[in-house]
Design a protein around this nucleic acid. Structure first.
Length: 428
RNA sequence: GGAGAGGUGGCCGAGUGGCCGAAGGCAACGGUUUGCUAAACCGUCGUAGGGGCAAAACCUCUACCGAGGGUUCAAAUCCCUCCCUCUCCGCCA
């Protein structure tokens, strides 16, 4: 969603910069609606002014005990014209807002051009892949053999794309959550939040999941609530419709939540294992910062997600998404991809984005300097978030990268305190 | 689920049809006073949209008293619907 004045004044520039991302946007329609809105607003305001003055005259006449019938009749007519124009204006504004909510964010100049993931740019690598004498087993073979993963029973309980973790597997998931939260809160300066996992339509609209991506979400039947697809939604909405004081920024939060995604349109992809589930756990990082600090913050935040992988000793690379692969609301995104030996390639485990003012505008999250100062005017904050990390995929990476020839799995050093001292997962 | 109360500016709080964008207080900010701090005093103190201006300052118009409709010449105030908060009862981890 764009500020209408900005959109009007920079119409062609925005359209051009959006390039292929703006292919679905009905530009001409929007331009017409903006002009109509302006013209109708002007008419309505002028008439309301007339009505206001006329009503004051009526009040005055009545106070003086003089007849006011003529004015009242005239004003009734004005009132009716206002109503007609306002009806028209309402339709124009609703249509325009709805279209505006469908325009994606502008990519940052540093984002590589390109239409799909083939044009993403590898930015750095960390560590080295482990070497195995025999071909690496995939995580579900390892997990099922160890008795810590059960997909058949999950399918019985719910359906496809769900998993049951048991014993040391469940413990490993819990250990990872605690390790991540502890690191982010004690070393990286984030405040822990445990938000609701169900949110309303306004929250989903503010962060950009709605109105365009409703089919990706689980929605309750009896209430207009949605299961969160990421903690980004409730945590960013923590400050919806708030004006923050300048010295409260930056605000940094970390939250553990389950995430629920319908995965519509991904039939046949990653059908086995923990990679793509309808429900998975994630620890999220969310920042609210002043606009001039958001790109610095993106680097920091990405680094915080990387620190988790470094602590676990997992090889990964960081990829800068090209314009076409960057999500709807984001201006710039780094994906962190962890090495998976069974696939012999990298797999997304975190996605860190700067949304600039895009979400803040939808969400009404502003900040204001101390009043009295010259530059005390209100401005939208910039919001950022990133996974730190997707927990299920971290389990995948650990099982695969730390698998041993005889079938057990070593537990990374940093997790052992969280595992009651356990140093490897053996068949139970 | 049943019964009731309520939502006004950053906060508290007045306002039951017109002269109300909204008294008063607190907080904040600028200043005077002061050895410093405090107190006191003076002043400033909403957001958004349109227009004027090259533009900032500024001027002007319009909207906004939980949201959306309605009644009326005129709505914070009356009516309807919805949302949210609180209290009591029931149920429940």
């Amino acid at each position: 969603m764009y500020d209408l004045r900005t959109l009007r004044d920079n119409f062609d520039a925005i359209r051009n910069q959006l390039g292929p991302r703006g292919i679905d946007v009905p530009w001409d329609n929007i331009r017409t609606l903006i002009d109509q809105r302006r013209s109708l607003t002007g008419q309505a305001e002028q008439l309301r002014h007339e009505l206001k003055k006329g009503s004051e005259d009526v009040a005055k006449l009545k106070r003086e005990g003089r007849p006011a019938d003529a004015s009242m009749v005239a004003m009734k007519a004005v009132g009716e014209r206002i109503k007609t124009i306002e009806d028209e204006l309402r339709v124009v504004e609703e249509t325009l807002t709805n279209l505006n909510l469908h325009i994606p964010n502008l990519p940052h100049p540093s984002v590589p051009e390109g239409k799909d993931s083939d044009h993403n740019v590898e930015t750095r690598r960390w560590g080295t892949p482990p070497s195995f004498g025999t071909p690496a087993k995939n995580h579900w073979e390892i997990g099922e053999a160890l008795g810590i993963l059960d997909f058949d029973r999950a399918a019985k309980i719910t359906g496809a794309r769900f998993a049951v973790l048991m014993g040391a597997g469940a413990r490993l998931e819990r250990a990872l959550i605690n390790y991540m939260l502890d690191l982010h809160t004690t070393q990286h300066g984030y405040r822990e939040v445990l938000p609701p996992f169900l949110v309303n339509r306004s929250s989903m609209t503010a962060t950009g999941q709605l109105p365009k991506f409703e089919e990706d979400l689980f929605r309750l039947r009896d209430e207009d609530f949605f299961l969160i697809p990421t903690a980004e939604v409730p945590v960013t909405n923590l400050h919806r419709d708030e004006t923050l004081t300048e010295n409260a920024l930056p605000l940094r939060y970390t939250a553990f939540t389950p995430c629920f995604r319908r995965e519509a349109g991904s039939y046949g992809k990653d059908t086995r294992g923990l990679i793509r589930l309808h429900q998975f756990n994630k620890v999220e990082l969310v920042s609210f910062v002043k606009p001039d600090q958001s790109y610095e913050e993106l680097e920091r935040l990405t680094g915080h997600a990387e620190a988790i992988l470094q602590g676990l000793g997992l090889h990964y690379r960081v990829v800068t998404l090209c314009a076409g692969d960057t999500g709807f609301s984001a201006a710039k995104t780094y994906d962190i991809e962890v090495w998976l030996p069974s696939h012999n390639h990298y797999r997304e485990i975190s996605s860190c984005s700067n949304f600039e003012g895009f979400q803040a505008r939808r969400a009404g999250i502003r900040y204001k300097g101390l009043s009295g100062k010259k530059d005390a005017r209100m401005e939208f904050v910039h919001t950022l978030n990133g996974s730190g990390l997707a927990v299920g995929r971290t389990v995948v990476a650990i099982l695969e990268n730390y698998q041993q020839p005889e079938g057990s799995v070593m537990i990374p050093e940093v997790l052992r305190p969280y595992m009651g001292g356990m140093d490897r997962i053996k068949k139970e």
